[in-house]
Amino acid sequence: MLQLSHMERARLKWGLIFISPWILGFLLFLLYPMLASMYYSFTDYDVLRPPRWVGLGNYVRFFTKDNLAFTCIYNTLYFATFSVPLNILVAVVLSLLLNARVKGLAVFRAIFFIPSIVPVVSTAILWVWLFNTRNGLFNMALRAIGFQGVGWLTDPAWAKPSMIIMTLWGVGGTVIIYLAGLQDIPGQLYEAATIDGAGAWQQITKITIPLLTPQIFFHLVMGVIGAFQVFTQAFIMGSLGGGALGMGSEAGPANALLFYSFYLYLNAFRFFRMGYASAMAWVLFAITLMCTLVILRSSRRWVFYGGA
């Protein structure tokens, strides 16, 4: 409050009054839990007995002694690396198709959008059934054209690709965002390009895609952050797709669907290792932050701001 005039102070007061719910929420549900989580991460804490200080023990154990640590980091990076770019690619293609002044746009748009609002649990259960090795639709289709079926959720090599295919079904929300972005691109740009002799492909790569990069960038950042937290789909597909109808492992065949957040959840709420889970949370935070910073840093080179 160094040099604020009377007027500025009055305005500040009103501003703070209005944002006070957020401030309280921030302190109680964000800042405090972050600090507490930091503290717990240096302790051994099973909820029943008070936390016991172990220094960096949890972190050391995670990186050197826990066999599943590598598995869950690998699975999560695999999922993020393929699902996010593939989702962007499919969304760009679909939105370009829809933007080509098609008749019945509203109908196509609805068809692509609806799967994205189907509740996640329903989606996962439905896809477990579609992926069923013996009686699933996909393997029946493969059999119909003379191929052998694939163990979509029972083969460790296929479990993650299967899950990524499922996430592509929910791409519709992003398509709507991209489509809105495409419709904001002024028509004169294309007219000018046509006069200069640019073909359709050139127009897409030189005008449309660059002007869509802000949306793609946003989706990339939020998509990567989201992919690192993937939980529900894996929780359902892992426990029932693999194993003998739910009686086998919980994280897919050979732990192929053991994702970071799921392993963290198991540690916290199944094994009651709250300190260990907190250390895992901070490792996740560090990985997420690093990836976000890399994307932000790279954005200067490929994200195009300006134009419309």
Partner: peptide, 13 residues
């Protein structure tokens, strides 16, 4: 941008 798992455990407690 903060992943939910970071606050999940202390919030539960």
């Amino acid at each position: 941008m903060l992943p939910y798992p970071v606050t999940m455990v202390p919030l539960y407690l």
